[in-house]
Design a protein around this nucleic acid. Sequence first.
RNA 1: GGUCCCAUCGUCUAGUGGCCUAGGACACCACCCUCUCAAGGUGGAGACACGGGUUCAAAUCCCGUAGGGAUCACCA
Length: 472
Amino acid sequence: MTEVRTRFAPAPSGSLHVGNARTGLFSWAHARHHGSAFILRIEDTDASRVTEEAVHGVMDSLRWLGIDWDEGPDVGGPHAPYRQSQRLDLYRETTERLLSQGDAYPCYCTEAELEERRRSAMARGEPPPNDRCRDLTAGERAAFEAEGRPHAVRFRMPEREWVTNDLVKGEVRWAPGHLKDFVLLRSDGTPVFLLAVAVDDLVMGVTHVIRGDDLLDSAPRNAAVIQALGGTPPEYAHVPQVMGADGKPLSKRHGSTSVEAFREQGFLPEALMNYLALLGWSKDAETTFLSRDELIEAFDVSRVSKNPARFDVDKLEWMNNHYIQRLDDDDLAARCLHFLSVAGLSPEPGTLRAAMPIVKERMKHLTESVGLLRFLFSDDVEPDERATAEIAKAPEGYLKAVADALAELEPWTTEAIHARLDEVAGAFELNRRKGFAPVRAATTGSTISPPLPESLELLGRDRTVDRLQGLG
RNA sequence: GGUCCCAUCGUCUAGUGGCCUAGGACACCACCCUCUCAAGGUGGAGACACGGGUUCAAAUCCCGUAGGGAUCACCA
């Protein structure tokens, strides 16, 4: 059995959105499933669109999700460097070789000329013509050179039928003449993606390329370059795109779709990974929850769906809540701490940890811990509108009576508080619902909170009584 | 427009000719539980785009139609 080598090659323009992340996840899962090397390569041949932060942002997002790599820009490897912008010499040398072999040729057309020919061909309903520079005579070439015209380098795409056996799409064919010559090297000497990808996949010994299906038409071009270089093309698996809820490709108007944004909203990486794994892939008819290891164990790229999937935030949130509920209290508290701090709160560790059992099934996002627990970690509890109304509805002297009853309560436990609250409510002929509501409003400032007795136990007797008396 | 890809509940999907009066999950509805909000439990509604074939038999195979997506850059 031959060695498997898989890579993920994101272009770091902007942040990593969940669609790309899913492609990366599939690539990674495929590599890990085969116990083989996973390579991270940064596709930054178009230097103008890349920033250093973007490169790190991509790596941070992947790592946060739980995706690791054996070779990459930061960890190095036998084929370093792993950023295409640092491999320019290799691409130029390769271009020279292709040129001398006759598999590529200089093209002197200007962008305006190209654009014009493209437009008129499209207007006539014909495919764009192949490049006129394809068969320039030595004389014509010399004339252009004499003019001082800059030239790009084009690959001479063999005019034959191309067939790829895609791991997810199956057999795909392109009839002769449908794949045009394409630019390998821009006139400024920088390489284009089609060259860089082919060269790197070949040189790095990549055996499996899992990428978005927007690159399906690139497969035969990549393969053609690799063949011209005497290599064997890798296996390709083109996975469908991830769409927004409206069925349109993910874009800015779908809001924040970056992995970073989900992280900031308080999603758990294990939940996002699980959700993404099931977006366009399934283990079987039943499986809904997969740990990282179970995903690795079960992943099979040939079971990836062929049609595009919509990103469903509702389901992600449901899954996030599921994972939050299953976290142990110390872990959950540590994760919530970050969001509470960001909100300006400084939770006492013991109280925070003790509060986890009563909030975990109430959070879809970790950020919700702020609203649920603010009353514990801040004495600035200004009742909101509904809470104020609830307090106003309480019978004359009720909150005062509750305060007095709780002031001397011993022991200060959930059970005792619960019983005492019921007693006072009963004395005022209030049912539990009506009896608890104003107390909740006065002590938490809200009509929504974790269970009241538990909340008050955590709040402590003094603060509870203070808040009740403060409102008479 | 040319070329390529796709097609099962609102959404993600199971399904590879008989196991399907189409299964699961999210969302939705009802009920139960209940101090609010959740969580949880039980039940319900809900799909094979359409039209032709092939076959004893089709969600599954073939061909059309109407859809959706991709691509046709000196972006990746």
